[in-house]
């Protein structure tokens, strides 16, 4: 049980690291939302699953926390995207001369 929990926690932290890396590396707001929300949600849920394997008696609380994450994370990302759109940020596009060269 402990080993399965550790594997899930490791997968979760790997996804969280990838999300953080994407937050730094992505070119504009919309791509950063993509990296920062999806990867982080999956990572957090995986860590929670690992914790549930470690302590099976915490299962109700963990289910509640997972419900909270599933409820708030997409709403937050959609609100950030809407705010960015209304602030006039245009999505990142590759400049035309570069794309012609390729």
């Amino acid at each position: 049980m402990i080993i399965i929990g550790n594997i899930f926690i490791l997968i979760g932290t790997a996804f969280l690291c990838l999300g953080a890396l994407g937050l730094v590396r992505m070119p504009d707001v919309y791509n950063r939302i993509q990296a920062g929300t999806k990867a982080t949600t999956l990572g957090a849920l995986s860590v929670l699953l690992g914790v549930a394997f470690h302590h099976p008696d915490w299962l109700p609380k963990i289910l509640l926390i997972a419900l909270f994450i599933l409820l708030t994370s997409p709403v937050a990302s959609s609100t950030i995207a809407r705010a960015a759109n209304r602030a006039g940020l245009r999505p990142f596009t590759i400049p035309t001369n570069v794309s012609e060269e390729k």
Binding site: L71, T72, V75, S78, T79, R82
Partner: peptide
């Protein structure tokens, strides 16, 4: 603030 945020706020 938009439909999504309103619904989520009511749920939350």
């Amino acid at each position: 603030a938009g439909f999504i945020l309103r619904t989520a706020a009511n749920l939350l």
